[in-house]
Structures are given as C-alpha cells and as structure tokens.
C-alpha cells in the first residue's frame, strides 16, 4: 500500500472556481474540464505570484521540497493542457487544509476562527466583547523542515562560517582560512 499523502496547507481558497475558454470555437470543443487541485493552485500562487523559491514555498505548504516541485510541475502540465486543448479549468479537490487564524475570547471563553483573511476580527462573534486573544498554532513540522537548511556555508575543515550567497553552490566557495571547499551548514556532508 502506498504511503499516505501529507496534508498540504493552503492559505486561502481561490477567489473563483475555474476558467472557461471563449471565442467562436470554444463552444465546439470538448466540455470536459481539466481538474486543477487546490494544492496545485497554491503551488502556482506561491512560486509565480508571490515569487518564492521552491524551498520557501514548500515550507509554507508543509511538504518537502521535492514534493512541492512535483505538485508545481503537475500544475503547469494541467494548465498547459487546458490552454492547448481549449479546455475549461476547474479548481477543486486535493488533499489540503486551509489555514485560518484562531482566536480566544476572554469574556465567554469560546474559541473561534477567521475564515476571511482580508477582514480583521475586532470583537467576539458570540458575546461581542473586544477582549480577544489571537492564537497562532505554530506548526512544528514546518519549523523542523526550515531548520534543516540554513543559509550559511561552513568549512568542514576549520569550521569557518559565512553567509550563503544565493545562486552560488556552497561547494564552489573556498574557505578563506584553509582554502578547503565549503559545505552547506546542516547537510549530512558537513560534520558541524
């Protein structure tokens, strides 16, 4: 039996349910839509709209970096298919959960969430007091993933550290003290 998919975190559901082609030929085409999953929509949004790199985006979605790249590739493939074949795109389904803030009311002790991120909650929806406490349940697994990759190059010989430069692999850098090749801090190859 295959391993169970981890739940992907999606910030907000998309504003629309999908896209329809238009033009004189659009009516004659196959009406069967291409099903873009919520996680694929989110992957596209994070990496091409918010301009995050795949590693940052994978942390946001709570999946590994290779999984994120797979989701993203599948999203592009589906969109390309819909464009070329003139198909509709339906955004639905997928193994996701939506992220929304949780609050606690100091007046009546109830908990409530905020399904609409655009609106700011000021008072308790149940008793109307303005004394509310915001809870943000920190996701431990995400932090662990983030810790795994630090943006620091380290010399495995003498332990010299310097800030990682984006775009240049760590093993292309040379340690200024002992001229040994540098490694990324936290990777299995480096002992420190």
């Amino acid at each position: 039996m295959p391993r169970v998919k981890t739940l992907r975190k999606v910030l907000n559901p998309p504003l629309i349910k999908g896209f329809k082609p238009y033009g004189p030929e659009s009516g004659n085409l196959n009406q069967e839509p291409v099903n873009l999953l919520f996680e694929e929509y989110e992957a596209l949004r994070l990496s091409d709209y918010d301009m995050l790199n795949h590693h940052q985006a994978s942390v946001m979605m709570g999946v590994s970096r290779p999984t994120f790249t797979r989701i993203y590739a599948s999203a592009l493939q589906k969109i390309a298919r819909a464009f070329v074949e003139g198909k509709q795109i339906a955004i639905e389904g997928g193994k996701v959960y939506f992220d929304s803030d949780w609050y606690q009311c100091a007046g009546c002790g109830c908990n409530f969430n905020n399904p609409e991120r655009e609106k700011v909650i000021e008072s308790c929806p149940l008793c109307g007091t303005r004394q509310i406490i915001s809870h943000d349940f920190p996701d431990e697994t995400n932090e662990e993933n983030a810790k795994h990759w630090e943006y620091v190059c380290v010399c495995p010989q003498c332990g010299f550290e310097q800030e990682h430069q984006l775009g240049i692999p760590c093993n292309h850098q040379v340690c200024p003290k002992c001229t040994h090749k540098m490694k990324r801090k936290g990777t299995p190859g480096c002992k420190i």
Binding site: V96, Y97, F98, C108, G109, N113, N114, P115, L126
Partner: peptide
C-alpha cells in the same frame, strides 16, 4: 474545518459548557 473554510463559514467553539 477545511470544508467550512472553503465556504467561508466561521466556527465558534464553546468548549465544555
């Protein structure tokens, strides 16, 4: 929760009262 979030329905949890 995912269902209600996608429908933009707010959940109010009144625990143990």
């Amino acid at each position: 929760k995912p269902l209600l979030d996608s429908l933009k329905i707010q959940m109010i949890v009144v625990k143990g009262s």
